[in-house]
Design a binder for these strands. Structure first.
Lengths: 134, 134
DNA sequence: AGCTCTAGTATCCGTTGGATACCTGAACTA
DNA sequence: TAGTTCAGGTATCCAACGGATACTAGAGCT
């Protein structure tokens, strides 16, 4: 077994690391909304739709920590907080959108594959233990 | 039902859906290793490194279900199972690698941002709740 | 006095990730 | 004859995490 490409494991880890940040349930949606311009907390909340306060807070904190968004607090009453993509965040948006484009054009194939798989593995059906795939 | 306003939110969901599949802790690593050619279960296990049997099984089942890898069982004793990327899997690899490339070239910036953020929010430090000069 | 607004925290709980132990069935070993 | 090894899993258990709900602050409005 000889590798055809040289893969540095640390690079793969870095990729995995970024993907874990970007790949959670809400991050892309939030970043996508922020791609149109800065938004306040609750604007973002309704724009994304279906996200809880806690998860939006968590997601935004993570993005802020990684330098993808800035958080600006206006000490008014009631308080006002604006979130905006940094340049790093905008740059991240490009490859993410590329992946998004791929996802958009291949959802059908993935769904078809899932349907096929689920049909082949009906719940409660006897599964042959050792069967050669031909 | 909202038949008229498609408004890309559904697309965002599709993107999020794919990213959740791709963005978990192990999927990219596994797909990356398989990008070099088919591998057996334990070859994959040692190639990835640090993954438990259960998680490798789970990951591979998911990838198989979505049509990204094929699973071929040879009914020998002891059994032999080969995993190989499908064409769909190979195509997925492209945008993922693009994102990986981005990740590789921006890890430093992200790490710097994290360090900055963590330094600003030292654990146990008093955080001003609403403070701003203006 | 009570309710509203904003941007959160605190709490609880079900789902998930991951380590460990166990299973198959033939062949090799003691 | 019993025990051990091989590969590729499953079963089980527990900790960590995601997410829904409830609660907080402080000023203004009714």
């Amino acid at each position: 077994m000889k590798p055809r490409h040289i893969h540095r494991s640390e690079d793969c880890r870095a990729v995995s690391d970024i993907l874990q940040r970007v790949g959670d349930k809400w991050t892309v949606l939030v970043v996508g909304k922020l791609g149109d311009g800065p938004l306040r907390f609750n604007e973002l909340r309704t724009a994304v739709g279906g996200i809880s306060q806690k998860m939006l807070t968590t997601t935004l904190r993570g993005l802020e920590r990684d330098g993808f968004v800035t958080r600006t607090v206006y000490p008014t009453i009631p308080p006002r907080v604006d979130y905006e993509l940094t340049e790093l965040g905008c740059e991240l948006l490009k490859p993410v959108n590329a992946l998004g484009e791929w996802a958009r054009s291949n959802t059908d194939r993935v769904n078809a594959a899932r349907a096929r798989f689920d049909a082949a593995n009906l719940p409660g059906q006897m599964k042959p233990v050792l069967v050669s795939g031909k």
